[in-house]
């Protein structure tokens, strides 16, 4: 995330140079809106992105992002957005094993990243995964394949100067022995954004609360940089409001 956005709390909390962003959510508070926001930012600053959509079809993202002022169809035509329609993607269905299909997927992403780097105006490249829990379903529970895949994607970030954004449903991994994927993602993350419902229950004005843990601040030698942020959010059609508890009526 290169640029500072409109000065909202989230971009302030995110800082400037997070390489790996992990978005955690749960059934009560879906975090897809954070992904939409990050995708919009990634494309706004002349960047390119690869979007691995396992949860929704393209038309959904297109309509949602259009209301936020970002035309995905246009970006897709200009080859700035590379959209992977993986709604019906099945690992190891016909040709080869699950690992093979992940390798093929990774190769494609790598090719795109390299092509982007080779171009004359090499811009920031973002890989967005929606969502990692579904990758596990694709792999029929083979966590190692998913971890390999994510690790390769992670390697891209350091080698090829690109950013990785992963959504994961945190409540699936509440059991201690099944935390594998979530722990790994948290470990490689520079920034963890966690959406949670309000503890007081549903409200029309506040849709939930967001906690941002910035693990990468030390790299920037900003001693004063805050590490943990907590604030509320309200999702709207054209964006999201972020505010501190109690500052809104």
């Amino acid at each position: 995330m290169e640029e500072y956005g409109g000065g909202d709390l989230l971009s302030e909390a995110m800082g400037s140079a997070a390489r790996v962003v992990v978005v955690e959510d749960c059934v009560e508070a879906p975090g897809a809106f954070v992904l939409h926001l990050l995708l919009k930012r990634a494309l706004a600053s002349c960047g390119a992105a690869a979007f691995l959509a396992l949860a929704q079809p393209f038309s959904h993202y297109d309509r949602v992002l259009r209301k936020m002022g970002c035309n995905l169809s246009l970006h897709r035509r200009n080859e700035r957005l590379h959209f992977f329609e993986l709604l019906g993607f099945r690992g190891g269905a016909r040709e080869g094993t699950i690992a093979d299909s992940f390798v093929r997927l990774y190769n494609e992403i790598q090719r795109l990243v390299e092509a982007n780097r080779a171009g004359e105006n090499a811009s920031q490249f973002t890989v967005v995964i929606d969502d990692a829990s579904l990758l596990e379903v694709v792999a029929l529970g083979s966590v190692n394949d998913v971890l390999n895949f994510l690790h390769y994607c992670f390697a891209l970030t350091s080698e090829m100067n690109c950013t990785l954004v992963v959504l994961i449903h945190e409540d699936i991994y509440a059991d201690e022995e099944k935390m594998g994927l979530l722990l790994h993602l948290r470990y490689i993350a520079d920034l963890v954004i966690k959406a949670a419902p309000l503890s007081t229950g549903l409200a029309a004005d506040v849709h939930g609360q967001l906690s941002v843990v910035n693990k990468g601040t030390f790299r920037e030698q900003k001693a004063k940089a805050q590490k943990v942020w907590n604030f509320h959010f309200k999702v709207k059609e054209n964006g999201t409001d972020f505010f501190y508890p109690g500052t809104r009526h």
Partner: peptide, 30 residues
């Protein structure tokens, strides 16, 4: 998941009932 993908691309609705208590916690959440 594949049912969802199929239903998305067609004009239909799928209703599934399931006894959530027989599933483990993490699968229930899935």
């Amino acid at each position: 998941r594949s049912l969802k993908a199929m239903v998305r691309s067609s004009i239909s609705v799928a209703v599934i009932t399931f006894p959530s208590t027989v599933l483990s916690n993490s699968f229930c959440k899935r």
